[in-house]
Design a protein around this nucleic acid. Structure first.
Length: 416
RNA sequence: GCGGAAUUGGUGAAGUGGUUAACACGCUGGAUUGUGGCUCCAGUAUGCGUGGGUUCGAUCCCCACAUUUCGCCCCA
């Protein structure tokens, strides 16, 4: 048997309906913020992600799906959305006439070669959005507000927004150096993983789970102390705005984010104080890194599958109507033919109709009626049909009504 | 890349080194000559993840691999 690939999954049935519900909420919300929908290709030139995300990151070094196509091109399945959207932005030269900000949202499958576990797969979905052209604390606040409201509307009220600022390039650089200097004498006291992080990405030592309680980490220099005046003012303004907007946030200096392109404001959405459901921030340097003019940008991505899991854990009720309007039962050939055209007629009039396609016994068809949770049923009967009549039964009250076939649509319209 | 747990039918599962692999749900048919959901009866795994090995014999023991699942790393 050929089975699905490790870390992939089929979406169908209940799950598909849940996702349709979530998608609807998210895209409606995006429309309110005037974000337009964008879909980018599943694969791009490898270089886009390698340069965009950061050559040194784990994501690029060991998690991308890289391959060569038949034309010997180096391609990569997108592991995240931002780089692709930036490519789109550049390719269309939107930077040339930025009279208004460019705001887009996406809901796309992403691919990373990882070891699957709870809320993590090789093929997964991210809902996210990006905004180009504004470089103001107010645009940061709008982005956080959109992310925040998305979770709230999905019924996840226990979320916290953790924010931090890495400052501009200079501040970030200064901080990194200070941190490295601070940690150097203590490095042997940290866990094995941290010793490796010290070489590769020292900022990440801050959110190590093992060493989080140690004094070394607690007394480490804080990003916010290294912000220059401009960066600091901007961050303070952002906090004021979030207060004003009544967004539940907390400043957390340990939020540094793993990807190279962030600067200034970074934030994560966490559930129950620890589980990350999404993250984002400002990336003013990325457009330039990818070959465009310096352009401010800010964005966010939600771990869609994780969020769905969280909704399940929090027992968020998702309204799913899986009942049908009418089941047509039939036995004889003429009854079955009648069922076929009657169903056609009713479906065109907007009703959800099912018939027996398996030539099963009447008893079996009745069982289907219940399985499908049909609101009404009709046992087609040749004698009735000769008089152009049907007996419509309300499956809840069990009441039967003899009506003319021509009146069926009107009757159902009134009773559904 | 590292570690733990698991893998029996459509589903939930019991089970034993040796004839026909429990039980339950579900499904199909019948009792009820065309009005069900209750009840009763019958049917429903050339088969115990895959490949090797031990054995007279393995679903049950051993090894490898795969997949699932939960962690680590990393990330959302």
């Amino acid at each position: 048997m050929i089975t699905k690939q490790k870390g992939t999954y089929d979406i169908f049935g209940e799950e598909a309906k849940k996702r349709a519900y979530v998608d609807e909420i998210l895209s409606t919300l995006c429309a309110k913020y005037n974000y337009g929908y964008i879909e980018t290709p599943v694969f791009e030139a490898s270089e886009l992600f390698h340069r965009g995300v950061g050559e040194a990151t784990d994501m690029v070094q060991k998690e991308t799906y890289d391959f060569k196509d038949r034309g010997d091109r180096n391609l990569t399945l997108r592991p995240e959305g931002t780089a692709s959207v930036v490519r789109w932005f550049l390719e269309n030269k939107f930077y040339g006439n930025l009279t208004d900000p460019i705001k887009v949202f996406y809901n796309m499958k992403m691919y990373r070669y990882e070891r699957p576990q709870s809320g993590r797969n090789r093929e997964f979905t991210q809902w996210g959005f990006e905004c180009f052209g504004c470089d103001d604390a107010r645009s940061d606040a709008e982005v956080i507000s959109l992310a925040y409201n998305a979770y709230r509307l999905l019924g996840l009220d226990d979320i916290t927004i953790k924010i931090n600022s890495l400052g501009d390039k200079e501040s970030r650089e200064n901080y990194r150096n200070a941190l490295v200097d601070y940690l150097k004498p203590h490095i042997s006291e940290l866990c094995e993983d941290c010793q490796e992080r010290f070489q590769k990405n020292p900022l990440r030592i801050l959110d190590c789970k093992v060493d989080s309680e140690s004094d070394i980490i607690k007394n480490a220099p804080k990003t916010l102390d290294f912000l220059n005046e401009e960066s600091k003012e901007r961050f303070d303004h952002l906090c004021e705005l979030l207060d004003l907007m009544e967004i539940n946030y907390e400043v957390d200096c340990k939020i540094v984010r793993g990807l190279d392109y962030y600067n200034h404001m970074v934030f994560e959405v966490v559930l129950d104080d620890s589980y990350a459901l999404g993250g984002g921030g400002r990336y003013n340097g990325l457009v330039e890194t990818l070959g465009g003019p310096s352009t401010p940008a800010v964005g966010f991505a939600m771990g869609y599958d994780r969020t769905l899991l969280a909704m399940q854990e929090k027992n968020v009720r998702i309204p799913i109507d899986d009942s049908i309007d009418l089941y047509l039962l039939s036995v004889s050939d003429t009854e079955k033919d009648t069922a076929a055209y009657l169903a056609q007629e009713l479906r065109l009039n907007g009703f959800v109709v099912e018939t027996d396609l398996l030539n099963r016994s009447l008893k079996s068809q009745f069982k289907s009626v219940d399985r499908y949770k049909a609101k009404f049923l009709i046992v087609l009967n040749d004698d009735d049909l000769a008089k152009n009549e049907v007996v419509l039964k309300d499956n809840k009250t069990k009441e039967e009504e003899r009506i003319k076939m021509n009146d069926l649509v009107d009757y159902l319209d009134m009773h559904l």
